[in-house]
């Protein structure tokens, strides 16, 4: 719609039989922003990610990425257009080393001289970026939880996405890892990536996001800056109120 949007969700719906997991949802993710999608458990956030990445076909509506509709395309084609993703439950290749997990995601580059060498270098760069260089030859099972999450991010970055979808990147993280995550997300934005994340950790979202959309029972109930969202009575009722009560 607007020139500034890298991703436009238009009247998107995904139903499972009678269950309306996502219903009539529209919003834009501005290019170069950090955009967060929040909502209670089961509100349709991961379903929305699955529709964006082509794992699920939409029941209705469209997804426009970089000006072109991508709904209905196979996942690998969507990835090649520039969308990367991490999973809520970590899905690394446990039989491969840290290095190979990232290397798998390397696409064939236009041949410009020493192709194979630069591919290795790019893997090393991503491992350095995510602080995993020292662990490059370890098997995945020897990494701690935070390292595994960072490896998933490194792997997603290997597909060279312009839009990176992070599904609950802070889940299970301690304070130190969380601080590192905030730093990493900001650094990725500085590198020109647009970040679109699902997150439950409220202070992380409020801290790092430029814009927030809120889902409840599959429908968008609010959208705005962190300040606006925190003040929105519908959000407080659906989500923040309970979250704060528990905190």
């Amino acid at each position: 719609m607007t020139d500034g949007a890298i991703l436009s969700i238009r009247k998107l719906a995904r139903h499972f039989g009678g269950l309306r997991a996502v219903n009539d949802v529209s919003f834009d993710v501005p290019r170069g922003s950090i955009f967060a999608l929040i909502g209670p458990n089961g509100s349709g956030k991961t379903t929305l990610f699955n529709v964006i990445t082509g794992a699920l076909a939409p029941t209705a509506g469209t997804v426009v990425f970089d000006g072109a509709p991508i709904s209905g395309m196979p996942t690998h084609e969507i990835v090649r257009r520039g969308i990367g993703r991490t999973f809520q439950n970590i899905r690394l290749f446990t039989r491969m080393s840290v290095f190979h997990n990232v290397w798998v995601a390397m696409r064939r580059q236009p041949r410009s001289g020493n192709g194979a060498r630069s591919e290795r270098e790019r893997v090393e760069e991503l491992l350095a970026l995510t602080g995993l260089s020292a662990r490059r030859d370890e098997l995945v099972e020897n990494l701690n939880f935070g390292e595994q999450r960072r490896l998933e991010t490194a792997r997603a970055l290997a597909t060279d996405p312009s839009l990176l979808l992070l599904d609950e990147p802070a889940a299970g993280m301690g304070a130190v890892e969380l601080a590192r995550l905030v730093r990493d997300i900001r650094r990725l934005r500085e590198l020109g990536k647009t970040i679109f994340l699902i997150e439950h950790t409220m202070h992380l979202v409020m801290d790092v996001a430029d814009r927030i959309a809120v889902l409840n029972f599959g429908e968008k109930i609010a959208e705005g800056t962190p300040k606006e969202i925190q003040a929105d009575p519908r959000v407080i009722e659906a989500y923040l109120g309970r979250e704060h009560a528990n905190a």
């Binding site: 794992a55 996942t75 997603a156």
Partner: peptide, 25 residues
Amino acid sequence: TRFGRAMRAVAERPEAAQILGVSVR
């Protein structure tokens, strides 16, 4: 080979291979 590593990726986690740009088909 490149194809071999795609095969191993699909063998272990097809959905993860796909999100890394591998065509499972």
